[in-house]
């Protein structure tokens, strides 16, 4: 992880298989912070299109799903005793749409989020960066482990479209009317290899 204030890398732990207690702790820490910042944004008259777009995700329920359902894997990045980011990945039933990989299986990133205090769109003074890169790299490694050769797919929230397109080098397959008109992105084995370089 990168401590923005200290401007240096700090130790973090990647957790494969989030426990119920860890999800509850993350929820208990993220929610009040997010609510406090939403109140501040409302008071300051910040336009709603700049508000965070995943405010109501319930990570406890996602953890239960991951626990009960073998095709889901849930990961977290912990640093300084706090969960800095969470991700839920589906490893079955999703296939590539991109022409060169059409029909081949991929790991689908169902949900990915950084803790609200790490988001430039939420926190006045964001604490850590690299959460997104670490989690995307983790999804790629999971895809390789599943013998999907690094192929991943996800629906990006509008505020993150540019990051997935330009910073991750994923292919933008356009708006998906089946999923709230969100843009759907895929990463080919070549793009995954490039990302990990």
């Amino acid at each position: 992880m990168h401590d923005r204030k200290a401007r240096r890398l700090v130790e973090a732990t990647l957790i494969d298989g989030i426990t119920r207690a860890e999800a509850e702790k993350a929820e208990a820490e993220w929610k009040p912070y997010l609510e406090e910042q939403l109140k501040r944004m409302a008071a300051e008259g910040v336009p709603k299109d700049r508000w965070p777009q995943h405010g109501h995700w319930d990570w406890r329920q996602k953890q239960e799903a991951a626990d009960a359902y073998l095709a889901y894997r849930m990961f977290g990045v912990e640093c300084q005793s706090q969960m800095q980011g969470l991700m839920l990945v589906l490893t079955a039933g999703k296939n590539c749409q991109i022409e060169s990989q059409k029909g081949k299986p991929l790991a689908y990133v169902h949900f990915l989020a950084a803790a609200p205090w790490n988001l430039a769109t939420v926190a006045p003074d964001p604490r850590f960066s690299l959460v997104g890169s670490i989690l995307v790299a983790t999804a790629i490694h999971l895809s390789i482990e599943e013998e999907f050769q690094g192929r991943i797919g996800l629906h990006s929230l509008p505020q993150a479209d540019e990051w997935y397109r330009n910073s991750c080098g994923m292919t933008d397959l356009g708006r998906d009317h089946a999923v709230q008109d969100l843009r759907y992105f895929e990463m080919t084995p070549e793009q995954a290899s490039e990302f990990l370089k």
């Binding site: 009960a68 950084a114 990006s156 929230l157 709230q180």
Partner: peptide, 29 residues
């Protein structure tokens, strides 16, 4: 690798999933 990625992540929001939706609940099929 992490050092190289720092700059690219500086101002990024990284959220993926669905808008305002968090109802994925445990079910054991």
């Amino acid at each position: 690798w992490l050092t190289k990625r720092v700059e690219r992540d500086e101002k990024a929001d990284v959220s993926a999933g669905m808008l305002d939706l968090g109802r994925l609940q445990a079910e054991p099929p």
